[in-house]
């Protein structure tokens, strides 16, 4: 039966006179020779063309490599004290100098990256997944279920973070898992609201209806069409979640949850350096610089992704 149809189609002679012809010059200007075939392959190709985004991605990758392997190859450990050289300025032996206990700041920054980056990325990832699924579900199906689920979100959101923190600490004790839990318990709410609003407005679009008429199932329509078309706001929200998690972690460390002395994260290093800000301002620079460069890189990556993922914005 399929063959018959194919044959019939082939028989249809395209009557050239009927069709709009493109000018030859127009053809060339519009047609960019590409090997990539799908939307995501195209997006990756275009992402690589964006210099700032590529630099940001390289920086983050370097940071991750340093976090994982740096401390292993360093002659010092994060808690090794050298009381003979306290508060040293940067030198060949200690590229970033030492702190008030004579600990090498460079190795502590690399070690701190482990905590800060894993908390930042892991919580952003968890919030992203929960937020997109929850918000997408509410926006797509709507109705009474959506109303109930969104009220629930409001309740979750209205409880002060400190209360969650106390609860989590009581139940799970003070460790990195508690930190993640405390950040994620209400962290996905913003994402869920964003995605819900996007999906609600996009689901009436004719391409979504067209997918339904074709026989696409709900999850295909939701994730292949609606979520993909909401990717702009999703990326922006995700990029904001990473630094906010890094700061929350340092706040939690400050009130005694998560890592404890002498372990290091960028947040705890910054708050330790605060006491010496008048005499040793350089000690403050390193963790803050690490946080800032990470945020900057993430923003570049976010912008690059946003552009690369929108075919209309590609050059």
């Amino acid at each position: 039966m399929e063959n018959q149809f194919d044959k019939k189609l082939q028989d249809i002679e395209a009557d050239d006179a009927l069709f709009e012809k493109l000018e030859d010059s127009e053809k060339d200007s519009e047609f960019i020779a590409v090997e990539a075939k799908t939307y995501f392959q195209d997006a990756w190709k275009n992402f690589k063309k964006n210099k700032l985004a590529t630099i940001g991605l390289i920086f983050i990758c370097l940071m991750l490599l340093l976090a994982v392997f740096g401390p292993i190859f360093s002659p010092y450990t994060y808690d090794q004290q050298d009381l003979t050289s306290r508060n040293a300025l940067p030198s060949l032996q200690h590229p970033f100098g030492t702190d008030k206990f004579g600990r090498d700041i460079f190795v502590r920054v690399m070690y701190g990256a482990r905590i800060s980056l894993s908390v930042g990325f892991a919580s952003a990832f968890i919030n992203l997944i929960i937020g997109v699924v929850y918000g997408g579900f509410c926006g797509y199906f709507g109705g009474k279920l959506d109303m109930v689920l969104m009220r629930l979100v409001e309740i979750i959101y209205s409880v002060p973070t400190l209360l969650y923190v106390i609860l989590v600490m009581l139940i799970f004790g003070s460790n990195i898992f508690s930190v993640l839990l405390a950040i994620c318990i209400s962290g996905w709410v913003g994402m869920a609201r964003q995605v819900r609003a996007q999906v609600m407005s996009l689901k009436e679009q004719e391409y979504a209806l067209a997918a339904k008429v074709m026989g696409a199932g709900d999850s295909r329509i939701l994730f292949k069409h609606l979520v993909v078309n909401s990717i702009g706001p999703i990326i922006v929200t995700t990029t904001h979640m990473v630094p906010s998690a890094i700061f929350t972690e340092s706040f939690l460390a400050f009130v005694g949850i998560g890592i404890s002395i002498p372990q290091a994260s960028w947040g705890t290093m910054a708050s330790e350096a605060r006491g010496l800000i008048m005499n040793q301002p350089i000690q403050m620079v390193w963790p803050v610089l690490a946080i800032c460069l990470t945020i900057l890189s993430l923003n570049f990556i976010g912008d690059g992704l946003n552009e690369a993922l929108d075919p209309r914005k590609r050059v």
């Binding site: 939307y39 004719e206 391409y207 209806l209 997918a211 008429v213 026989g215 993909v228 078309n229 929108d310």
Partner: peptide, 20 residues
Amino acid sequence: RKDIQYIFQDPYASLDPRMT
């Protein structure tokens, strides 16, 4: 769904802008 199809009015809205 296979037997019945629909052509929409707005050719700008009926094709997903993020698909080839």
